[in-house]
């Protein structure tokens, strides 16, 4: 297969398949979670569940003083990683172009050089995350092969994108193709691993916050 044919395939049929699996899988998972439902709470509400739910969705994004002082590195690194991923995925112009095609809305991007630097930082933070996972006995103990798999499928698009942009190792066309393919791998793997947290985090926080809110306790 010629290089260009591979690129055409990656941008065409392969992307279609990956996207279909992603959408299918994610909806399946979310539907499953939602449909499980909760038992009706018969106790008298002592506070607003809705307010608690909404508050928690946001407040859980902020660090907890107690946790932070215990493991500052892990928490800072977590922020770096997630903010980095956000910037790289959503604020790079060529990516926005893709979202515009998908959803019809567009927004401002960052200069390519900035995104490039953020990518490097994000890649580093992924490695730090891996080290923390390996060196922290508890974390290591509860880690499953799936956790290492999602680490890898998150890393690949970052590295291939970085190398394509900076013309490292392989020609741009091949690197771009690998980049697209690695994103497709991520899309396929995501619904069936802990990567579902990219959506389900909202639900989880909502439930927690809702329950706590109803009981009138802080969450």
């Amino acid at each position: 297969m010629e290089l260009n044919e591979l690129l055409i395939w990656a941008r065409g049929p392969a992307f279609n398949i990956a996207l279909a699996i992603f959408v299918f899988g994610m909806l399946l998972r979310l539907f499953e979670i939602l449909s499980l439902g909760r038992k009706e709470d018969l106790s008298a509400a002592r506070g607003s569940g809705v307010a608690g739910g909404l508050r928690t969705i946001l407040s859980r994004s902020l660090p907890r003083q107690t946790l932070f002082s215990r493991e500052p590195l892990r928490i800072i690194n977590g922020y770096l990683l997630h903010i980095g991923l956000f910037v790289v995925i959503f604020l790079y112009r060529p990516h926005i172009e893709l979202f515009e095609r998908l959803f019809g809305v567009s927004w401002m991007g960052l200069p390519t050089g900035v995104v490039d630097a953020v990518t490097a930082v994000t890649i580093l933070s992924l490695f730090v995350a891996l080290l923390i996972r390996i060196y922290n006995p508890v974390l290591r103990f509860i880690s499953t092969p799936g956790d290492y798999l999602i680490w890898l499928v998150t890393l690949l698009p970052l590295v291939s994108g970085y190398m394509a942009y900076n013309h490292l190792l392989l020609g741009y066309t091949l690197m771009l193709t690998l980049h697209i393919l690695s994103v497709e791998l991520l899309l396929i793997v995501a619904p069936f691993t802990k990567l579902t947290h990219m959506f389900s985090f909202v639900l989880a926080r909502w439930y927690q916050g809702y329950l706590a809110g109803r009981r009138g306790v802080e969450s």
Binding site: I8, R11, G12, P13, F15, N16, L19, A20, I21, F22, V23, F24, G25, M26, L27, L28, R29, L30, F31, E32, L34, S35, L36, P94, H95, E97, L98, R101, L102, I180
Partner: peptide, 26 residues
């Protein structure tokens, strides 16, 4: 960077199937 596929259609179809299967699973 824009994929050369009918993405809207894909999403709708896959979404419908996802919801359907999700309902069964539920």
């Amino acid at each position: 960077s824009v994929p050369q596929s009918r993405m809207g259609e894909t999403i709708l179809k896959a979404g419908a199937v996802g919801v359907g299967v999700g309902a069964v699973a539920a």
